[in-house]
Structures are given as C-alpha cells and as structure tokens.
Amino acid sequence: MTYRIVHYINQFFAGIGGEEKAGVGPESRNGALGPGMAFKAVFGNEAEIVGTVICGDGYFAENMDEAGEKILKMIADFKPDAVIAGPAFNAGRYGTACGAVSEAVLKKLGIPVVTGMYPENPGVDMFRKSVYIVETSDSARGIKDAVPAMSKLIMKMLRGEPIGSPADDGYIQRGVRVNRFHDKIGAARAVDMLVKKLKGEEFKTEYPMPVFDRVPPAEPIKDMKNAVIALVTSGGIVPKGNPDHIEASSASKYGTYSIEGVQSADEVAYATAHGGYDPTYANTDPNRVLPIDVLREMEKEGMFSKLYDYFFTTVGNGTSVASSKKFGSEIGERLKKDGVDAVILTST
C-alpha cells in the first residue's frame, strides 16, 4: 500500500513570502509543495504526500492554541497515516510551530510524526521529549541531509520497525532509557573507563550529565527611585544606516550607542536591522521596540533615577547561543562597572 503523508511547512517554504507574510493564517493545499517535493522524490511509490498544511510563523506564535487546532483539523481531513513537519533548521518560531504541531498530531491523532531542527533551535528543548526531532544543520542548505534522515525515520515508524538509538537514527536525544544486555557488568565497564581516563585515553560515558544552564534570579531593586536602568534589545534597533553593520541574521556583534539627551527613538534617527520580522512597524516608530520615549517620561517623573547613557543592541535572529552569551557577558560587565542597577531587555 502507499502510505498517506501530510507535510506541515511555514509561509516561507510554501513560497508565500518572507517576514512580511509571517502573519498569514493556516491553509491547506493538495499534494506536495516546496521541500515536500524533495520528500516526494525519496518516498517513491511507498508513500505519498497527499497534502500540505501551511501557517505563517508569526501567526502561529501569536495564536498558538487557535492555530494549532485549525492546523490539526486540516491535517486530519487528509486522513493521513503519518505527518512530517519542517525541517525548521534554526528558525525559532518555525521550530516551535513544528514541535507543537507534531506533539498535537501524536496526542490527538495518534499517528507517527517526525520533524527536523538544529539542536540550538528553541523548539528542541520544548518538544524533544515528546517528539522525534531529526538533527539538521542550522540553515536550509542542510535540506539534502535532512530529507533522507527524516524520511528514513518516518518510514521505519510506518512499517512498524524498531527505532534505533539517537546516534543510529539521527534524531535528538529524547531522554528515554532503553534496557539492553552488555557482555560486561557495570562495575567492569566503570573500571575500564577509569583506566582509560587515567591513561589520558578517550572514553565514552554511558550517562552524559545534563547541562543545567540556569542563572539564579538576581536580587530585586529595593530603591527604584535611585536606580540606574539600562536598555538592551535583541530587536535590532540601530542608528539609521546601521553604522556597525550588524547582520540581519546570525549576528556576530552587538552595538553600543549613546542616548544621552535623546528623548525618543524616532524614525528619523533610528531603524531596525533585524531580518527576522516585518520591519514596517519598528521603522515607523522604533519606540515600539526600544521604548526610549516613555522611559524618558518615567525618568522625569522620578519613577527611577536615570536611564543609562548608552543602549546595547543586536539582532536575535538565528544568532548562536555562544555569541549571545558573549554579548551578554560583555554588556553585563560594563554595566556592573558603571553602576547600573537593572536592565530592561526587549525582544521581538
């Protein structure tokens, strides 16, 4: 028999448009579309993409419950045997949507589903425990590897074949432990590992420790009237012309700009460099992302003592965790040195 598969993709991969179209709601089309054509080629006669369900990333992110329900109904209407979502690579909102749709398909329709993401995609942490997420590269250039890996996994599920380990089948660890028999008992394996470690040889742990990357909440501001507050944004607001050439995505740097005496982030002097959302509204009034105007009013009213003389800005679009950490540490050190008490960080 030929298995019936439905494919979930965003507005970009459907060819509807980029960020300016991210607000489009769910829609359903017959047959394969965009990356679905690559899946179709791999499936051959064994499976067929009977339909494609599309939703704008912005629409999904802002209407998760309602969009999720609509999308699930559109998927169910095709009476599929399985669903594939994405791959979303390192697109955060797309990854979140693919993960949420996949989880809903599993829970409500009870049929196999596979998605694909880059390990740093925020959708991974949110959904890797419930959904099989094939590890992909960070950009659409990785589609060539992602399609065969996702196809292989979904076909295994459809045929009822056992799913191998994450390393064998190319998906991201789900935190599931599987029993299996070893030739040597645990104590012997542990001693082997220890000997290798003492010799300085490479060894592979059987239980990698999870990374608890959390920071304890800082102490609150006790005396707000005397506090200095700094403004930071990942929404890409920069002085017009983007003097430091901060990249529209995967930013490698942040900017530090004086706002001494600036009363408003007006559209004459500021604009956004962000390539991950529709810039129309931010460019019409940059205060919508970098709220200098109201903070100045609040400063005058004495709600806090002073708005720090500089703001820090970067583009949080596909920017790596390593870069973001580095930016944050540098900004934090400087603010600490300058006696800043608290930070307001805005994100788009």
Partner: peptide, 11 residues
C-alpha cells in the same frame, strides 16, 4: 542570562 549572571537584575 549572561547579563543576570553578573548580578544585575534583568527583566
């Protein structure tokens, strides 16, 4: 997180 790690409260 990286800013908060220096001890400054972030919202």
């Amino acid at each position: 997180k990286a800013i908060e790690a220096t001890g400054i409260a972030v919202v």
